[in-house]
Design a protein around this nucleic acid. Structure first.
Lengths: 239, 239
DNA sequence: AAGTGGTCTAGACCACTGA
DNA sequence: CAGTGGTCTAGACCACTTG
């Protein structure tokens, strides 16, 4: 509620949310039109729209033109995670950052990598393997494939100075990004670089990015034992 | 661009984004006021606002009243993940779902659990341990603590019929949720329930939720080997 | 073809916060 | 206390989609 007695979109959201919780609007069911809700709750339609968008972003409802608004029958816990540039991650924890380039090569991507892009003919790629160190201790091992066709400037970058991770994040906007998180058995070489026993399962992030339909990069980042991904604390200031 | 030649907020967003990429607006630097950008790009201030909100949601810029808009000096890859109700997760993969309640008890939370809520005196809690099965195979082991003070109705729920997971998601809206993702060594009992060797590290999700300041639940969910968390594919339809 | 959500505009006022 | 972003309103029109 604002100072002059008008309803804020948060109020409207909370009221609609309340009706979903108390089953006034049941899972799978259709809500009234925005305009009708606006009239009932005495606010502008755009305010209802703002509230609805918030609920839709949280995955509680689904909206379709002409189809109307329906309550998601299977609510989810939606959380957002920030994956920082590795150097920043390490420095923000108070460690000294070092970056060790292991090797690079230009080859055709093997099928399992091309498949990540959903495109069997993804062309020649630059493969970069590198180790990120925190206070001289291994922290993240990364095995990266970069499309030479989509990112041709990459040949001019000196990866001794800047990590591929940082260069790409800063210079290559992507329009699509897939992230997968898993605990994986690590391979021989990964184990060696991270100084862990071979059989150990560690936290792995696999990330694939595209610009439009063009593949940019796929990276497998194997994290040091004990690493935790932490969600952005989403506070929905409940009244 | 809309049919009648007006700029859509996506156009505006892409133009501003472009200026961040090409260093017209540099990391850490201040952008012009919304109103000035609106004049320059010939659109309404609210359209600029809409574009700015999108960029802020993606973590590219930071906005403050009076302080203005600044380019985030350390961009991140922001991704959202949906954690479904476990029954839905299993069924949507085509397996038969079963739920096995292991045990429940009402006790004061130990310090390590109370600490998750940031509150040493979180009161008496209900601890529930349960196993979720997919086609009769162990899938997720969950060790859950529920605040009896905040969720008093919980005593009336029959956890043979509905899992605590599902009941809470459907009936207890939360205003804050912390999620942590890690690959953890599993404990003796967890290993036994999941039929994995004791030393194995598996994917673990720890979730803590509050309603306002009141703790609701903390759960540690240990996932079957091979489990992958997959991000919502964010498509930023690039032009 | 018609209905519903999505967006844009213009203007007013609020609320936070940095100087 | 003044400046900037945040929100609300009313109205018009667009665009998607379903019947």
């Amino acid at each position: 509620m604002t100072a002059d007695g008008r309803q804020s979109w948060r109020d409207i959201r909370d009221q609609i949310h309340g009706r979903i919780i108390d089953s006034t609007y049941r899972p799978g069911e259709k809500l009234p039109r925005d305009e009708d809700i606006a009239q009932e709750l005495k606010c502008a339609r755009s305010t209802v729209h703002r509230a609805m968008r918030s609920l839709a972003e949280d995955g509680l409802i689904e909206r379709r033109r002409k189809g109307g608004t329906t309550v998601n029958p299977d609510p989810v816990t939606r959380t957002t995670i920030d994956i920082p540039i590795t150097r920043i991650d390490i420095e923000s924890r108070g460690y000294a950052y070092h970056h060790h380039l292991i090797d690079t090569m230009e080859i055709e991507a093997p099928h399992r990598i091309a498949a990540k892009f959903g495109n069997p003919s993804s062309g020649p790629m630059l493969r970069i393997r590198a180790l990120h160190l925190a206070d001289a201790q291994p922290y993240i091992f990364e095995d990266r494939w970069i499309s030479l066709r989509s990112v041709s400037e990459i040949s001019d970058v000196d990866f001794q100075t800047v990590s591929a991770n940082e260069w790409l994040v800063r210079n290559r906007p992507f329009s699509r990004c897939d992230v997968q998180i898993l605990a994986d058995d690590i391979f021989d070489d990964e184990a060696a670089y991270l100084e862990e026993p071979v059989a150990t399962a560690l936290l792995v992030l696999e990330r694939t990015t595209w610009a439009g339909d063009a593949p940019i990069t796929h990276v497998r980042a194997v994290h040091k034992r004990g690493y935790r991904l932490v969600s952005n604390s989403t506070v929905h200031d409940a009244t």
